[in-house]
């Protein structure tokens, strides 16, 4: 089991944002976390990536408890992330963005002598190749199209050979066609390299097409978990989240 979460809780000023969520993700598996706005998805996510410390509960990555560690430590233990709104270094080229992750992985950030320009680009290029961005390696990230930025983020997230990928609304802000392409790419990489993927998502087409399992939250608590077909048929999930299906084409 790559990731095992047991009964985590978090409250803010008396408001219980997450009240007892447990989940697990295996290598090569895609688990989707869905639910209405304010259900606690983001809070859950931020506890997993280290931005928040759970009040209670365990978060176990490959046998080690990571609850409460800062994000950079969690990254070094093999967790890659992509953000809801892409976060890249806008003043650097696509290649340099990936190289930064590699330099950080090699503990070389305090090198003040060797120009980055003379680094061997082979590994970074290989990563960009994997996400189909090699052709744009020299362009500054500040001018890329949104869908391409998402791919760069994926390449950065893969730079330290992660065991787990956390993707917060990976297709938010993308056109439907790009969504499908990005998730197919992600699913392929995850299955081939044995990476566990946990993602939140509002696009039900993406969720039902790519998730192996789905966990539905409402008001900080899990209300359903299972394979897509099971979850889709669940009357409670329909009531609090999915609705009639008129707006997502999945009934």
């Amino acid at each position: 089991m790559t990731l095992l979460v047991e009964d985590i809780h978090k409250s803010f000023g008396g408001v219980q944002a997450v009240a007892g969520v447990s989940l697990s993700v295996q290598a090569g598996e895609l688990l989707a976390l869905i639910g209405p706005n304010g259900a606690g998805k983001s809070t859950c996510f931020n506890m997993l990536n280290g931005q928040l410390r759970p009040d209670r509960g365990r978060i176990v990555l490959k046998g080690q408890d990571i609850a409460g560690l800062p994000p950079r430590r969690i990254w070094r233990m093999g967790v890659g992330r992509t953000f809801q709104i892409t976060a890249t270094f806008a003043s650097m080229s696509v290649l340099e963005n990936v190289q930064m992750a590699l330099l950080s992985h090699a503990h070389r950030l305090f090198d003040i002598w060797n120009p980055v320009r003379r680094e061997d680009p082979a590994r970074a290029m290989a990563l960009l190749e994997r996400v189909g961005m090699a052709a744009q390696a020299g362009r500054p990230c500040g001018v890329l199209a949104y869908g391409d930025l998402k791919r760069v983020e994926l390449a950065i997230a893969l730079a330290n050979d992660p065991a787990l990928l956390l993707m917060d609304e990976p297709t938010a802000g993308m056109a439907p066609s790009e969504r499908v392409a990005l998730m197919e790419l992600t699913a392929g990489i995850a299955r081939n390299s044995g990476i566990a993927v946990l993602f939140t998502e509002h696009d039900m087409e993406v969720v039902f097409a790519h998730a192996d399992r789905i966990l539905v939250l409402d008001r900080g608590r899990p209300i359903a978990e299972g394979e897509p077909a099971q979850v889709r048929a669940d009357p409670r999930v329909r009531e609090v989240y999915l609705g009639t299906g008129a707006t997502h084409g999945i009934a």
Partner: peptide
């Protein structure tokens, strides 16, 4: 400077 969030997320 560009993205504190991303920097932290790649171990910086």
């Amino acid at each position: 400077r560009d993205s504190p969030l991303r920097a932290e997320a790649i171990g910086m």
